[in-house]
Amino acid sequence: MNTDKSIWVKDLTKKFGDFTAVDAISFEVGKGEIFGFLGANGAGKTTAMKMLIGISKPTSGAAMVAGYDVFHQADLVKQNIGYMSQKFALYDDLTIKENARFFGGIYGLTNTEIKSKTQQLITDLGIQEVVNQNVGSLPLGWKQKLAFSVALLHEPKIVFLDEPTGGVDPITRRQFWEMIYKQAHNGTTIFVTTHYMDEAEYCDRVSIMVDGRIDALDTPAQLKKQFDAESMNEVFLKLARK
C-alpha cells in the first residue's frame, strides 16, 4: 500500500440495491496536489466523495485518506481532513468568531490554539471590522473565503472542496483560487469539484466520472491532447455526451 499518497483508492464501489453508483474507481492523489474531481450531475461524484470523507461505507474496494482506512478508521479520516461545500459551510446565525470557536472545538483544538488561529484568520482575510457580525449578513464571496479558512483551522493534510465557488462573482472566484494555490503550495492536498470548466484548468490533474466510473484522468493539457479538444469544456462535453 502506498502511504506517501494523500489519497489512495482501489476499486472503490458503492451499490444502492441493484444500482451501482460508484463502479470500481481507482486513483491516487499526491501530497500538495490540486486534484479536480469532475463529472455530470448523477455521475457518482457526491457518493464517491462521501466515502472518501468517511461518512458513507463502501460496498467493496479499498481507500486510504490522509493515511487512514475509510473502512475501519472513518473517525480518524474525519479528524484529519478539512471539508467545505457550497451548500453548507458555516452557521449563518453565529458570528465569525463563534463559527471559528465552534469548528475549532469540534476538531479538538485547545482554547489557546483557537484564539491564536482565529486571530490569524481574521488578519489574513482582513475582516477585522466585521468579526462580531453574524456570518449570514456577509456577502457570499466573503463567506466562501471564510469557510475555506475555517476548514483549514485544524491544519488538515487534505481539504475536500465541494463546488466551493458556485454562484460566486468572477473576481472573488479568482481570489478563491489564489487561496487554493497558496494552500497547495504549503503542502495541503486539495480535492475539488466544480462545474466551472475554466477552474478545471487550474488543477494539476483532473478526473472525469461518467456513470459511476472514472473515464478519464490526467493533467488538463494531456486530456485536451487525448480528446483532441481546445478546452476542458470540450473534453467534458465529448466524454459526458458520448
Binding site: G39, A40, N41, A43, Q86, E163, G166, G167, H195, M197, N233, F236, L237, A240, R241
Partner: peptide, 13 residues
C-alpha cells in the same frame, strides 16, 4: 430564476 445553477456543463447546454 437560475435554472442552471449547480447543473453540469452538458445538462446546461
Amino acid at each position: 430564476d437560475e435554472p442552471t445553477t449547480g447543473v453540469d456543463p452538458v445538462s446546461r447546454k
